[in-house]
Design a protein around this nucleic acid. Structure first.
Lengths: 117, 117
DNA sequence: ATATCATACAATCAAATGGTTGTATTAGAA
DNA sequence: TTCTAATACAACCATTTGATTGTATGATAT
């Protein structure tokens, strides 16, 4: 099993990259098929350069990778990164569960559970 | 089962809110215990107002809710929102899987699979 | 009643973000 | 070779973000 080795900065970049509808759409499209930057650019009502920048943000977050193919760059989504994000969210859930566990222990004590103090 | 009813804006806010280490820490802490805004503020090397703003961002993203308790506001993490984020990431994974399925169908054809065209 | 603690909120500011246009480079097509 | 399509990248601009300080309000404690 691969250890989750992400710096806080990496996590910031990861979630930030996902916090934009155009970028999420790019991730979707590049997960289901190989697409070039110019093909992507044709789909959105913004300049080529703007799309290029969105791809760059996704690339820094390692949510996609670019691979040269002739004179164009094919963009491919990186599912592993998505899974890392999922594991991060899982850890929140585990924290929450640990709280419930502690509450259960309190409730199981001989003495009645003290109110939150 | 609850339908995932989030606008693009909601999703933007959700991921954006998670794209900051202080805010993620606040979510963690408020998932495991009830904490007031001032208790939170004591933990970070920034002004009370700055922490207040982080909490406000989390609140707009509905990752936490504030509940008045006497003169202080208790902040409580909202696990449902985390789970919604998880479901969003799941949908990426499903998209990817659909691609694999389509590739499998191609490979199962009589004719040898054509190269990506 | 008064002092204090917890919060709310406005004004301000530097830096980052998301977009633009323009110019340069590079690879394929004619 | 020459033209063109795909990309790279710089400069610029408006808006948002993340922080600050200062002031006001409300609830507790003395």
């Amino acid at each position: 099993m691969v250890v989750l080795e992400l710096s806080e900065q990496d996590v910031n970049r990861l979630f930030r990259a996902l916090a934009d509808a155009t970028r999420r759409d790019i991730v979707c499209r590049t997960l289901v098929a190989d697409v070039s930057v110019s093909q992507l650019a044709d789909s959105y009502s913004m300049s080529f350069a703007a799309v290029q920048k969105h791809v760059a943000v996704l690339e820094e977050a390692r949510l996609v990778a670019k691979e040269p193919r002739g004179r164009e760059r094919m963009v491919r989504g990186n599912l592993d990164r998505i899974r890392q994000a999922q594991r991060l969210l899982d850890s929140f859930e585990e924290l929450w569960r640990s709280r419930i566990d502690r509450l259960d222990i309190l409730l199981a004590e001989d003495e009645p559970a003290p109110p939150d103090s």
